[in-house]
């Protein structure tokens, strides 16, 4: 909470980006305390990782300090106080925190906890709810990511191929030889870890989204160390864009297969003779779809931002 207030007060935007990152990490810690390990994992990688990187790239493009004048402070205060008061009013007869007898704990939740092992045979209940019971939400989520990727691309685009081989600004750490060596050593294990997270989601925290973020992080690290040009030689961006589409379509086609087999959309039990192993295949495939889309979109978004940073640096020269 102190962090949040600090964010509101600090004028230096770099500092507040850092504070936002810290805030995000703190909430991840809170999520662990609340038993939501999957959520914590995601929050840490997204809030403290991806969004911090994106905000920093934006700031290098736009400048670091904000104008201290505030508009509408009084209106804002009134609106906020009214909303806050309404919420406090709402808490008056909320169920007690941690109470096992609340509607949330007694109505639908128990079905997942009691039946999911029998119906889907996956120990991590979060995974089975995410990918099977509420698989359509997750499909929607994948499409949201895809939509964001499309939006960023249409706004920033990736700049065309350049002949220049000078060290780009998007590789701020290029000069540090030690970092480069360490990085080279680190990247393969990170990629491996991503794969582990991808396929281990059935048993422990993890899954397609987190794996995608980690995978993308490895490539972003590579870019920071060796420059955008070097990275673009390894991965063609138009291919990445295609991959983003493929991920969504993989998810969708799993759904389509199940209704070609006479079951409802996303009913994985149609995928194999045995319903439970069908669920297994289904979850594996859709998580893969999520992973592919997330990786591809994250890379695209990062490259779009980095491309702009490079362009600006060139103009300044």
């Amino acid at each position: 909470m102190a962090t949040a207030i600090a964010i509101a007060r600090v004028k230096d935007l770099f500092a507040s980006v850092m504070l936002t990152g810290i805030y995000s990490l703190l909430s991840a810690v809170f999520f662990v305390l609340m038993d939501a390990v999957d959520v914590a994992f995601t929050e840490a990688s997204v809030g403290a990782g991806i969004s911090t990187i994106l905000m920093l790239s934006t700031l290098t493009l736009t400048g670091q300090y904000e104008d201290p004048t505030r508009h509408k402070t009084r209106t804002a205060l009134v609106v906020v106080l009214v909303t806050g008061a309404l919420l406090i009013f709402g808490t008056a007869d909320m169920p007690r925190f941690g109470d096992p007898q609340t509607p949330v704990q007694t109505h639908v939740g128990p079905h997942y906890l009691e039946k999911s092992y029998e119906e889907i045979h996956v120990p991590n209940v979060v995974t089975s709810v995410l990918a099977s019971y509420r698989g359509f939400d997750t499909f929607g989520e994948t499409v949201v990511i895809f939509a964001a990727g499309i939006g960023v691309l249409s706004l920033l685009g990736f700049s065309g191929r350049k002949e220049k081989t000078t060290i780009s600004v998007s590789a701020p750490m290029y000069q540090h030889r030690i970092l480069r060596v360490v990085g080279k050593v680190l990247i393969p294990p990170i990629l491996l870890f991503a794969l582990y997270v991808q396929f281990h989601g059935d048993f422990g925290p993890g899954g397609g989204f987190q794996a995608g973020v980690i995978f993308a992080a490895a490539i972003i690290l590579y870019t920071m160390l060796f420059g955008r040009q070097a990275a673009e030689e390894v991965i063609k961006l138009s291919w990445v864009r295609l991959l983003a589409a493929v991920g969504v379509m993989l998810y969708g086609s799993v759904g389509l297969i199940s209704f070609l087999n006479g079951k409802n959309f996303l009913d994985y039990s149609a995928l194999a003779a045995d319903a439970v192993s069908g669920q297994h295949y289904g979850i594996l495939l859709v998580e893969l779809g999520v992973g592919i889309t997330v990786t591809a979109v994250m890379i695209l978004v990062f490259f779009s931002f980095a491309g702009r940073v490079d362009k600006k640096a060139e103009e300044n020269e």
Binding site: T42, V46, G109, V126, D137, F209
Partner: peptide, 13 residues
């Protein structure tokens, strides 16, 4: 309860 966790995973994304 796993359900809120799932919802929030989606919401974070």
């Amino acid at each position: 309860n796993p359900l809120p966790h799932v919802l929030i995973l989606t919401a974070i994304v």
